[in-house]
Design a binder for these strands. Structure first.
Lengths: 333, 333
DNA sequence: TTTAGCACTCTTGTTATCTGACTGCTAACG
DNA sequence: CGTTAGCAGTCAGATAACAAGAGTGCTAAA
C-alpha cells in the first residue's frame, strides 16, 4: 500500500511528533533524519500521505501531524516492541521481586512501576476470581450474626466477604457450613457458582435454606466484584503540552474521575494480549483525543487484574508496548 | 478590635468574594448589600481593613480580596454554621441510611456525599483500630503456610491480615493459637498490642515463639495500617476560576496525587472536632493557596476514619462547616 | 523522478492605543 | 467629626496593527 520511502517518512513524522508535540516540517525531517532526500521530495510524499489520510495539517502553512489512521498504521505495521533499556528491565525486575502478602498488591506495584517508567497515567482494577478454582473456603463467625467467608483460589487470590444475618448463628452451624461448602466446592471452578450451581448446592447440601442462600449470593458477588480502582500518576498529564489547555486537562480529569467509565474502559479489549485503542477508535467521545493501552495481568491462565495506560494520542506506543511486554513476561515468573 | 460596621463590611467582602472570585469594589458593596452607607465611606473602612491586614489588593486600582488573616477572622468570629438547606439534610440522611456491610464503606459514602454537596474535592483515610477494643479474633488457615487473622473490634471495625510462614502449620496449631489469643486479648484495647504487650504475650502464652511472633507483628501492623486513601471529586477543581491557570491546577493535582502528603494532611489536626487550615497556615508550601478542612469520623468514641475537604482559600467555609456538623450528628446515629 | 527557488499563507509575538473599573484624596456637608 | 460627592490618577485587559518566521505548494530546471 505504501512504498518504502513513504513508510519511512510516516514513521519519522510520527516518532518526531511523539517526541516534540510540534507539527513536523519537511525541512526538519530532511535535516534530522538520514533519509537522503530533499525537503521538496518529502513535501511531495507528505502531500500524498495527507491525501491518503495518514496525516493531518493544522492549517495551510504548517507542518504535518499524524492522524488516527496514521497512528494505527504505525502501531500495526511499524512499531518496534523491543524499545526498552537495560535500566528499565532492571527496575521492573527489582519492583516485581518485592515480597507481597496478597496477589493484588502485585497488580498495584506493576501499575505504579508502569506509570513511573512511561510517565503516563496508569490505572488498574483487581481481577475477578471467575477464572479461578476454589482451593479452600473458610467461614468465620464474627460476633453472633456476622459471618465472614474467606475464599482462597488456586491462583492465589484471596477474596473475603461479609454476610449478615437476622438471627444468631451458632458455632455448630458454622462448622456444618464449612464442611458442606468445602465438600461440595473444593477444586471446582468459581465460574460455576451461579444460578444453576446455586440450585445444585441448595438441593445437594440439604441444609437450612435461609442460611445457605444469602451465603451463596454474597460469595457470588465477592467473586465477580472488582471495584477497587487503582490510579497512579494523574498529575503526569501536566508534563505534556497537549494538556496545557484548560479544556483538554479538564476532559482528561473527568474521564479519570468517573469510576464507572474507568471500570468499563478496563473491562473492554477481552481477547488480545495487549489492546490498543487510539483516539477516535474509542467508543466514548470523551476519549477522542486520548489513547488507551490495556492488558490483562494473567498468571498461569488465571486473571489477576487489568492494567491500563492512558495518555494523549501522541503516546509513545513503542516504549509503552515494549515495557508492558517485558513486564508480562516477568509477571509470569 | 473591629467596630461593627467594619465587621459587616469584612463579612460582606468575604462572602461576595467566595461567590464571585472577583476582587470586591466599594461601589458594588454599597449597591448590593444593605449597609446604608456610601461607597466613599466603605472605601475609607476598606483602606483601614487593608492597613490592618484583613484585606489585600491585587493592584492599586482594583477592588479588595480577603487575606489569610481576613479568612481566619471570618472563620473564628463571623461564620454561621447553620448554612444548610432542608434538601441537603435529606440528601445526607438518605445517603447515610444505606445498608453497608463494612463500617469503612460508611466513611466512603460520607466522603462522596460531602464532595457532591460542597462541590469541592474530598478525601478520606480509613481509621486505625487503635482506639478500639478487641471483641473477637479469629485465625483461618489458608493452604498450608498461610494464616489469616481477622480482628473484630467493639467499634465494628474488621481488620484482616495475612501471615506467611516458612513451615507448614497444622489445624491443631491454629486451634491453639485461636484459643491463646482470644483468652489473652479479648476485651483488651488494641493500643496495647505493642512492644511491652508483645513480651507479655510471648511469656504468658508459652507457645512456640516462631509462630507467635510473626503473628503479633503482623497484627500490630494491621491495626496501625490506614493506607487506603479515598478520593472523590478531583475534577471539581475545574469548576473554580482559580484553577484556570496551569500552575495552580498542576500544583493542586500534585498535592492530591502525592499519597504520603495526603495521609499526613489527614492525620494532622488531632484535638478539635473540625480542623480548619487556611492557606499559609498550612505547614506545606504546596498548600499555600489552598484550604483544608478535616474532621475525624468518631462514632461512640471510636475512630472510624478521617475525612477532609480541600479547595481554594476562597472556600465556602460556612457551607462546608454546616454540612460537616450535620453529617457528624447523623453519623452518630 | 528529484530538486532548487520563490511566492504565498498563516501563526505567533510585539507594540501601541483605548476603555472601563477602581481607588485615594480633597473639599463640602450635616 | 464622621460622612459623602466629585474628580484625578492608576492599572488590567481588550483590540488592532504590524513584523517576523516557519512552512507549504507550485513551477521549472536538472
Amino acid at each position: 500500500m505504501l512504498d518504502n520511502r513513504k513508510k519511512r517518512i510516516l514513521q519519522a513524522i510520527i516518532e518526531e511528533y511523539i517526541q516534540t508535540a510540534e507539527p513536523v516540517s519537511s525541512g526538519m525531517l530532511s535535516k534530522k533524519y538520514d533519509l537522503n532526500i530533499s525537503s521538496a521530495t518529502i513535501r511531495n510524499d507528505m502531500a500524498e500521505l495527507e491525501y491518503a489520510n495518514f496525516l493531518d495539517k493544522p492549517h495551510t502553512s504548517s507542518g504535518r501531524v499524524p492522524s488516527g489512521k496514521g497512528y494505527r498504521y504505525y502501531v500495526n505495521e511499524l512499531l518496534k516492541d523491543n524499545n526498552i533499556t537495560k535500566q528499565e528491565m532492571q527496575y521492573i525486575k527489582l519492583k516485581l521481586e518485592q515480597k507481597v502478602n496478597e496477589i493484588e498488591d502485585l497488580t498495584k506495584i506493576a501499575t505504579s512501576t508502569l506509570s513511573e517508567l512511561t510517565h503516563y497515567t496508569s490505572l488498574a482494577i483487581g481481577g475477578t476470581a471467575i477464572s479461578h478454582n476454589i482451593e479452600d473456603i473458610k467461614f468465620v463467625l464474627l460476633g453472633n450474626r456476622v459471618l465472614m467467608a474467606v475464599i482462597l483460589t488456586d491462583g492465589g487470590l484471596i477474596k473475603e466477604t461479609i454476610i449478615k444475618f437476622n438471627a444468631d448463628i451458632t458455632e455448630e452451624q458454622v462448622r456444618n457450613i464449612n464442611q458442606i461448602f468445602n465438600a461440595n466446592l473444593r477444586g471446582k471452578s468459581l465460574a460455576k457458582i451461579d444460578k444453576p450451581m446455586e440450585e445444585y448446592i441448595v438441593s445437594e447440601m440439604s441444609y437450612e435454606l435461609q442460611i445457605i442462600k444469602p451465603i451463596i449470593e454474597q460469595i457470588n458477588e465477592a467473586i465477580l466484584q472488582n471495584d477497587d480502582i487503582y490510579l497512579e500518576g494523574t498529575n503526569r498529564i501536566f508534563e505534556m503540552p497537549e494538556f496545557k489547555s484548560y479544556e483538554t486537562a479538564r476532559n482528561f480529569l473527568n474521564v479519570i474521575d468517573t469510576k464507572g467509565l474507568v471500570k468499563e474502559l478496563l473491562n473492554t479489549g477481552q481477547g488480545e494480549e495487549i489492546h490498543i485503542s487510539i483516539g477516535d477508535e474509542n467508543q466514548y467521545i470523551e476519549l477522542k483525543n486520548l489513547s488507551l493501552i490495556t492488558f490483562k495481568n494473567i498468571v498461569e491462565g488465571k486473571e489477576m487484574g487489568t492494567i491500563g495506560i492512558i495518555g494523549p494520542t501522541r503516546m509513545d506506543y513503542s516504549k509503552v508496548v515494549s515495557i508492558i511486554k517485558y513486564m508480562l513476561k516477568e509477571l509470569n515468573d
